[in-house]
Amino acid sequence: MLSTIALYTLVPLAAALLSGGIAAVRAPGPRLTSGLQHFAAGVVFAATAIELIPAVLERSPWVAVAGFAAGIAVMFTFRHVGARIERGRAARGALGVPVGLIVATGIDFLVDGVILGAGFSTEAQVGVLLTVALAVEYLFVGLSLSASIAGTLPTFVVALLPAVLAVLTIGGALGGAVLLGGASPALLAGVLAFGAVAFMYLATEELLVEAHESGETSVGSVGFFVGFLVYLVLSELIS
């Protein structure tokens, strides 16, 4: 099981590496970036609605409520801390490397890994579909991260940083699988509910916010629904 999970984690790792390479060579323009971020947000929302939430409700709804509440508290605490770091750097005139964004992305990737491990512990199909969602997520989150540090750090750092952070996903996935391999349905429900919040936070507070800042277009907005539809079709084909 662990070797299988490790193999699947290489997919989002490769996506993160690809994103850094693209940004290092030539980052996409604002409108294309907006459309791609909408698409990624649609995939992430679909993974939450189709895989995580049903798996949670089938096991222990009340534990899921607690896990969801914990996820809200943790994710918005991270947001608050990251915002304070960036404000402090701005006040000191240190407007170069976005340390807060890098730290938040690393934490997000680690949490994603734990959720992936929990997904495989729940059902192999859930793990496979979450892998697809993470690959799309890492491609566009990594692209945004690399684009934000381009010009402030060496090119090789711009290219490799998303992949380096994605290594945290491998550790999180293997750790999650070990710790949750024999977990009760209630505990799995709580972890998956926490993961649902992490996924939705990423889509609403990062991908869609950045997409709207890049430039809102009707074509870009359609990308959200196309992403949701693509994941839905993949879910039906794999099942």
Rank of each mutant, 00 (worst) to 15 (best):
A173N: 04
Y201L: 07
A163K: 08
G71W: 05
I22K: 09
A198N: 11
D108E: 14
F194S: 09
A23F: 11
T217P: 06
T9W: 00
I72V: 12
V178I: 11
E58A: 12
A177P: 00
L134I: 09
V164K: 07
F109V: 13
S3T: 08
A69S: 10
G20N: 10
A118C: 03
A173G: 04
L116E: 07
E123P: 00
Y201I: 04
G190N: 15
L101V: 09
L165F: 13
V97R: 09
I102N: 11
I53C: 08
E86K: 14
T4P: 01
G71C: 06
S184R: 14
L192Q: 08
V74K: 02
A135S: 09
A135Y: 01
V43K: 08
V126C: 00
A173H: 01
G29D: 14
G117F: 00
V132C: 02
A24W: 06
T204G: 07
A166T: 08
L237M: 00
T77Q: 05
P30M: 13
L134K: 11
G220E: 09
A66I: 09
E51K: 07
S146E: 04
E213Y: 15
L202V: 12
G29C: 13
S218I: 11
R79D: 15
E51D: 14
L129D: 02
R79I: 06
A198Y: 10
V226M: 12
L18W: 14
G142D: 10
G195A: 11
G176D: 01
G176N: 04
S221T: 10
M75T: 10
G227N: 12
T122V: 03
L52Q: 13
V25M: 05
G96I: 05
L101G: 13
F109A: 15
